[in-house]
Amino acid sequence: MSTLFIADLHLCEEEPAITAGFLRFLAGRARNADALYILGDLFEAWIGDDNLTPLHQTIARAIHALVSSGVPCYFIHGNRDFLVGRRFSRESGMILLPEVQRLNLYGRELLIMHGDTLCTDDTGYQAFRKKVHNPWIQRLFLALPLALRRRIAARMRANSQAANSQKSVGIMDVNPGAVVAVMEQYQVQWLIHGHTHRPAIHTLQANGKPAWRAVLGAWHQEGSLIEVTPQNTELQFFPFQV
């Protein structure tokens, strides 16, 4: 019995090794899980469900095959793919979850999220996030011609990379107070998230008791997952190729 969590694959045509590693994972390790949770940034960018590229179609088919094998797959939007919608959900078989989800796994209460909302010290990003999550702005963007959306997305990625290069390491990490606040809001002792690309399991205090924050790694040179079993919660790494 085990449930698997992954995040921050940032799949794109320019990184075929990561895509190959993910496809191998879906056809292999993931088939033995009780469920798979993808906690955002599965894709490097997502400009609408109508932009179904060969990569997107390949990933949709592979996830659908996993779901058809009996392993449900759940998805929380990340800051790169927050526009993944119902059409891709249907084609892939993924179940879309809200940005914060409480789970009971094997008798243990835990909270899952992408993690960007915890980075409250980065006020510039949080202001930008508030704008792009406005439903009206999203509708206007999705109504634009696909070619124009591609140009806008490329410009936004370039601007984001330039802005991040000027920020301190600490400002782009989670705020400890925000972590405790959300864990106490949902009354949990375990939190699993991605986004920061700083894999680790941290100990802290929440709800007046010991608590743990498990952070997923990004899929750069190797895969990263968190496995939750009735006995343990473990951060694991594995090669793209076996």
Rank of each mutant, 00 (worst) to 15 (best):
I226G: 01
R102D: 05
A65S: 09
T117Q: 14
T203N: 08
G40E: 11
F25Q: 13
R86C: 10
G208R: 13
A127W: 10
R87G: 12
V132D: 11
E15N: 08
A62M: 02
H202F: 03
L105A: 12
R108E: 13
G177K: 05
Q189Y: 04
P98N: 13
T3M: 10
E234N: 08
R31G: 06
L204S: 10
Q126E: 02
L4K: 05
L11V: 00
A153E: 12
A178P: 03
L9Q: 02
A35F: 04
D122Q: 02
E184T: 03
I192L: 14
D81Q: 03
K209V: 12
G93N: 11
R155D: 02
L140P: 05
P176E: 06
S69R: 10
S224Y: 01
Q187E: 10
N232F: 01
Q138F: 04
S68F: 02
V100N: 05
S68A: 14
A147H: 12
H114Y: 09
L148E: 03
V100L: 05
L142E: 14
A178W: 07
S92A: 06
V182D: 03
G217I: 00
Q241R: 13
R90I: 14
L144G: 13
P230D: 01
F238W: 03
F5D: 09
E109F: 07
S165A: 13
I201H: 04
K167F: 15
A211R: 00
N51Y: 05
H77T: 07
H77K: 14
E15H: 08
T196D: 00
A20V: 10
P72S: 00
V215H: 01
H202Y: 06
V100I: 09
R87S: 12
P98Y: 08
N164L: 13
V242Y: 00
R149Q: 04
L105W: 08
M113H: 05
V179I: 06
I201E: 13
T58S: 04
A200K: 14
M183L: 01
R129I: 01
L97V: 05
A20E: 14
P54W: 11
R90C: 15
N104D: 15
A147C: 02
Q189I: 03
R31T: 04
